[in-house]
Write a protein that binds this DNA or RNA. Structure first.
Length: 510
RNA sequence: GCGGGUGUAGCUCAGCUGGUAGAGCACCACGUUGCCAACGUGGUUGUCGUGGGUUCAAAUCCCAUCACCCGCUCCA
């Protein structure tokens, strides 16, 4: 029995939504390709976001930055320095520790060794603080004390990162009784590194951006100078980002190349809390409006301990995927941290002159940062449904019509009596306005089911009556109900339905 | 990165202790059919993940490698 995620992955492959990248060469971990239907779905998600956050508003402008930027951008943002935590592995037990959470306790026991020196014990403990780390070594030291006598004084405590190479060999790891099993700290930088220009030396190193946000901050002054924007205002960007994840997992959820939809909303410091509350609510509602209606959608505020040091408040919009509750979008109140950092590193003044108060200020920023691929995956998971029609099982993607890759399919009921010709004419007319699909093969029931499986919300069928009175039926994907409309009205009706499915009015005509 | 599992047709999978690769569904054509996965007939599809080794002979045994899944780790 396949679980829900397996079924969805299988459907995505079978119907052309998502493929493993470079599959004919065996694939590559953490990268995925969107097929003919997947690209439409993802594009629709991005379009919906752009339309709602940029075109539909008067206070947001768009931007499209280069993926490769001056490396100093990532020094200012903290990605080069603090982006990755160095890790230490235990060769004996295969445990892995964060190096900054390893402390070494050095005890001196009165019993002397062959050189006449006191016996040393280098015991590593693990914890976010020295106190927390102390427990393990204390226990081991107590054991040793029975053999070598009570330690002469409290232990010397050294963070593992500060140990010399030679001293590391003396350390007994938290999970062993053997010395020298810990590796040197190794850092896993999550940024993809490359070289700009022909020479592959240190001065040519550049990074693929790990987020789109910094491009917005780096262009803040340009937009203020040229965009005729006034506080409060936002700058939006959709684009690819890259993180060399240690362990990509869960289908497309954690990929090494992914697409972000980020908004940086700049405002006066005293209004920031209000705007944070606004965007926190607004972004949650956006997912609800596009079909994540169920209790599987959550809004979770970060606790004080969880907050990044510069953030005044952060909330995650989470979705209960089959593989667990995971983040779709984070809304962060980042204060003036980012602009201040770039002022410091670039030496440029990024403050804003407020005409109203006649003062200069560094705006605060609210950052709703969403993953387009994660949204696509959530919408697919939410839409995937198995139900019964006339006693037969059916797989249907109940995607919001605005997101559906194909908006309507046009069928002749059977392939004769001029029905195909009439259906094709309707198809061509519809295709001028919307992505639509024509199919005349096999039984009509099978064609309906095929469209259900890829989420096509409406099917238009030309039947015997169509040839007499020039009407056709429109079938609704979710209810399988049909109603009859004049064929000349089909295009307008489908367009309206895609924008607002609640307008469906069965009973027009007959 | 570590440990465990898996990899055979487009999808789901069978293929035993080595002996000429299969099923269901899907897909295509023709006929039939006239509104929810119908039927008949015919047909297409695979370097058995990849590379190497053992063997007269490897989907099957061994080694390596890649990918996916689960757990650990990580997720600024």
């Amino acid at each position: 029995m396949l679980d829900e995620m397996d079924k969805l992955v299988s459907l995505c492959k079978r119907r052309g939504f998502i493929f493993p990248s470079s599959e004919i060469y065996g694939g590559i971990n953490g990268f995925w390709d969107y097929g003919p239907l997947g690209v439409e779905l993802k594009r629709n998600i991005k379009d919906a976001w752009w339309r709602d956050l940029v075109h539909g508003r008067e206070d947001v402008v768009g931007l499209d930055c280069a993926i490769i930027m001056n490396p100093r951008v990532w020094e200012a943002s903290g990605h080069v320095g603090g982006f990755s935590d160095p890790m230490v592995d235990c060769r004996a037990t295969k445990e892995r520790y964060r190096a900054d959470q390893l402390y070494v306790f050095v005890y001196l026991f009165p019993q002397v060794n062959h050189k006449g020196e006191p016996t040393e014990a280098w015991l590593a403990g693990l914890g976010a603080s020295v106190e927390e780390a102390a427990q393990g070594p204390e226990r081991k030291a107590a054991k040793l004390a029975r053999k070598f006598g009570t330690p002469e004084q409290p232990p010397t405590i050294i963070p593992y990162l500060e140990l010399s190479e030679a001293d590391r060999e003396k350390v007994i790891g938290p999970s062993t009784d053997e010395r020298g099993t810990l590796t040197p700290p190794r850092s896993f930088n999550l940024m993809f590194k490359t070289f700009v220009g022909a020479l592959e030396d240190a001065s040519a190193v550049a990074y693929l951006r790990p987020e789109t946000a910094q491009g917005i901050f780096a262009n803040f002054k340009n937009v203020v100078d040229t965009g005729r924007v006034k506080l409060p205002f936002g700058i939006a960007q959709i684009g690819k980002s890259f993180r060399n994840e240690i362990n990509p997992r869960n289908f497309t959820f954690r990929s090494r190349e992914f697409e972000q939809m980020e908004l940086e909303y700049f405002c006066r410091p005293e209004e920031a809390t209000e705007w944070y509350a606004y965007w926190r609510k607004e972004r949650f509602q956006w997912y609800v409006r596009h079909g994540l209606r169920s209790e599987r959608l959550r809004l979770r505020d970060h606790s004080a301990e969880e907050l990044a040091f510069y953030s005044k408040a952060t909330a995650d919009i989470e979705y209960a995927f089959p593989f667990g509750v995971s983040e779709l979008e984070g809304i962060a109140h980042r204060g003036d941290y980012d602009l201040s950092q770039h002022m410091k590193f670039s030496g440029k003044d990024l403050s804003y002159y407020d005409e109203e108060t006649k003062t200069r200020l560094v705006p605060h920023v609210i950052e709703p940062s969403a993953g387009a691929d994660r949204a696509a995956l959530a919408f697919l998971c939410e839409a995937y449904t198995e139900d019964e029609v006339g006693g037969e099982p059916r797989t249907v993607l109940r995607l919001h019509p605005r997101l559906a890759p194909i908006k309507a399919a046009v069928f002749p009921l059977v392939k004769k009596d001029g029905m195909p010709e009439k259906a094709e004419a309707i198809y061509r007319e519809l295709k001028r306005h919307l992505p639509v699909f024509y199919d005349e093969k096999g039984a009509v029931g099978r064609r309906y089911r095929r469209q259900d499986e890829v989420g096509t919300p409406y099917c238009v069928t030309v039947d015997g009556q169509s040839l007499e009175d020039d009407t056709v039926t429109i079938r609704d994907r979710d209810t399988c109900r049909q109603w009859r409309v004049a064929s000349g009205q089909v295009a307008r009706l489908i367009c309206e339905l895609v924008e607002d499915p609640s307008r469906a009015i069965p009973g027009l005509g007959g």
